[in-house]
Design a protein around this nucleic acid. Structure first.
Lengths: 200, 200
DNA sequence: TATAATATTGAACGGATGTTCAATTTATGA
DNA sequence: TCATAAATTGAACATCCGTTCAATATTATA
């Protein structure tokens, strides 16, 4: 609460940056354009983010926070119940809902920066470690997976999820999209079933 | 063979573009820089590629061709034999070799363009359709998968492969890398085993 | 060899880029 | 209220961007 104006401006700038990046792409969004979009001179943007690199770095933190926020409702739902139906869980993971809330184009643009920037790489790694850890905790709380390698299971589930979004992003045709979606879903169902303790 | 000089120059320009993109990133590689790198004026580049958009489009075709070329030895090996050991096949798919031959950074940069360019999206889609189709053909030729949904199997294998490369690209630590690599490999082994006809 | 087509050059363009800076306005705290 | 700090402005910068164009050199064709 020390610098309230400062914090609000920073937030405003980053969100403006994000919005324009969704529309025109990260690489086509300049500081001048952000300024025009928000009705402020570029020099003000540079007052809060001294270089473009710092700006981008903050945009990435913002995006990764958003990404985490999208997962959170699913994770929290599973944390409250001691056992949640895997089907509903998988359905949430593959829900089309957060395609509306989150722009994959900007996400992959930022992802591609990990190959030349170790700090960004680390930030992406930490995000995914956190997600995997959350899932593992949930699985551990479930008796069906007692004594199983839930670390490995969580890892293998997320690999399918990421691969699925990679492929689904290429698909325009709704029927094809749904068919593929079901294929990837059942792939995760199978993983869960494979790991579950057999009840009689 | 009509325009040999033209074709060679085009190839030279695209490869120069690719090399600089590997070093500095796609978004930091300008026409002027390519010209300087190859010792030719930017106007010559624009003579062969009238706009930057066309240049990028050709770079993407080049990259997707290369991507296909990396898969080809594996695919051809499996085509010649009537039955190839799934293990060696999976090993090849996950071989670290083509990380040396192919730059994932440029690949993902180009991939992120699919979200705002339908032609690029289609080109990526066709590439992956082709790869999946090749794998399906190979599986179909194998008696162990007779009567099985090899289309689905191929799809699910590639989802794991793509997801795997997505995650592995974030890992620097060699031990962690290898551990994850094995997890993803065994995930594909499991898929193959699940689909195989049971022999006694 | 003459002619047409192609390849190559170098200069120039308007505009956009990230960044700097000094001046001014606004808010904060004593 | 007054001094100090923070927020904001607008102009200016060197440099790079993609692109254009007319002129020249080279090659292919008849």
């Amino acid at each position: 609460m020390a610098n309230k104006i400062s914090d609000e401006r920073k937030k405003e700038i980053i969100e403006g940056f994000y919005q324009l990046s969704v529309q025109n792409g990260l690489e086509n969004t300049s500081i001048a354009k952000i300024g025009k979009h928000l009705g402020m001179p570029p020099s003000l943007i540079m007052h809060y983010f001294p270089t473009r690199e710092i700006l981008i770095s903050n945009l990435i933190s913002h995006i990764l926070d958003q990404y985490l926020m999208i997962y959170e409702p699913v994770i929290r739902e599973l944390e409250t119940k001691n056992y949640a139906d895997p089907n509903t869980f998988v359905d949430s993971l593959f829900s089309r809902d957060w395609n509306m809330l989150f722009d994959d184009g900007v996400f992959y643009s930022c992802y591609s920066l990990i190959f030349r920037n170790d700090r960004i790489k680390k930030e992406y790694r930490l995000l995914h470690d956190k997600l995997r850890e959350s899932l593992k905790d949930i699985l551990d709380r479930d008796d069906n997976f007692a004594g199983k390698d839930t670390d490995l299971l969580a890892e293998q589930i997320f690999v399918v999820v990421e691969g699925a979004y990679y492929y689904l992003s290429m698909i325009d045709d709704e029927n094809v999209y749904n068919r593929k979606l079901e294929a990837y879903k059942s792939q995760v169902y199978d993983l869960l079933r494979k790991y579950e303790v057999q009840h009689l």
